[in-house]
């Protein structure tokens, strides 16, 4: 078995890399949509694609951290909603930067709460974050008085559309966060500890890694990034709805899974997640361009998720788990 792997030709070796396979899938979707719709390849539409990826993309990055440890965070959508509402309430008093800081700190705090309950008290992440999801949404309604907040400072909008090196700043933020997350997960002690915990918690513990701290930390990251996504979303539409981010957790989990991560933890990559996000956004966008009823989009996305997981299972069964 080991000999076979060593003798694989470079191309096949490349094909065994998870991200490469997912990139292939993304290209297939891209080419298909380009052929199907004349509007798809236009510059405007491509920029639009990236713009639409920002919110789901940032939330999915946080979700990747949690799923890599073998957990799940169902609360991201509600956290986005409640932190955005808090920001909207704080901004008239604290200014734009103050409001953003309030949102991110609140998101990290909620993540810490979930993380401690999951890691320290050994509760199921599914249940804890399900509870936090309900609490978060309910608080979003209460804090906002069931109304949208739209008296936001006009300069807030600049946060999204000021170009950085020719790229709109929200897209630049997305890309910068992915580069940081990739560097962290690949080249730091904490990042490798997160993978080790997801792959074999007992072995990580017996090897002396700080399992408790790095089981909590992904929830903090996930909460903080959900808040960042909320900031960018609110800045884009200059209005904060207590319903913002509803069902976002499903898109984020789908992106991570399409990106090749295992829900059992330990396997997956942040690059894969980004590709997963792009695949989902492209399909939504393409179906819109083709005039397919929005009601069919759920079926399309769902079909893609199941097909991606099935393909991954079949391929990894052939290449011995990698």
């Amino acid at each position: 078995m080991s000999e076979t792997i060593a003798r694989l030709r470079p191309l096949r070796r490349l094909a065994t890399r998870l991200e490469i396979r997912m990139l292939g899938l993304a290209l297939v979707v891209f080419v298909t949509l380009s052929a199907a719709s004349p509007f798809f390849l236009q510059t405007n539409n491509l920029l639009n694609l990236l713009d639409q990826s920002v919110v789901t993309g940032i939330v999915s990055a946080g979700m990747s951290f949690v799923i890599l440890t073998g957990g799940i965070d169902l609360s991201v959508g509600s956290v986005l909603g409640v932190t955005a509402v808090l920001m909207g309430l704080a901004m008239p008093h604290l200014g734009i930067l103050g409001g953003v800081l309030v949102a991110v700190a609140a998101g990290a705090g909620i993540g810490l709460f979930s993380g401690v309950l999951v890691a320290r008290f050994d509760l199921a992440s599914f249940v804890v974050t399900l509870g936090v999801m309900a609490i978060g949404r309910s608080l979003a309604y209460i804090f906002s008085g069931q109304n949208s907040i739209s008296d936001l400072p006009p300069g807030f909008n600049d946060l999204v559309y000021t170009p950085i090196l020719g790229i709109p700043s929200n897209v630049a933020t997305l890309l910068a966060l992915y580069v940081l997350a990739w560097l962290y997960l690949t080249f730091t002690k904490g990042g490798r500890t997160i993978y080790a915990i997801g792959s074999n918690r007992e072995a990580a513990r017996a090897a002396g890694l700080n399992v408790l701290a790095y089981s909590i930390m992904p929830y903090v990251v996930s909460g903080a990034l959900a808040a960042v996504a909320g900031v960018l979303l609110s800045a884009q539409i200059l209005s904060i709805d207590p319903l913002a981010g509803t069902a976002l957790e499903l898109d984020a989990i789908a992106a991570v899974v399409i990106g090749g991560a295992s829900l059992a933890g330990g396997r997956g990559s942040i690059i894969g997640t980004l590709i997963g996000v792009l695949i989902m956004v492209m399909i939504r966008n393409g179906l819109n361009l083709l005039g397919v009823s929005p009601f069919w989009q759920g079926s399309a996305i769902g079909g893609i998720i199941i097909a991606a997981v099935l393909a991954e299972r079949l391929v990894s069964a052939r290449t011995g788990g990698h």
Partner: peptide, 14 residues
């Protein structure tokens, strides 16, 4: 080095 090789020692995805 704990007793259970697969359960307590190996990180399978590494």
């Amino acid at each position: 080095v704990p007793e259970d090789r697969r359960g307590q020692n190996i990180v399978p995805d590494f």
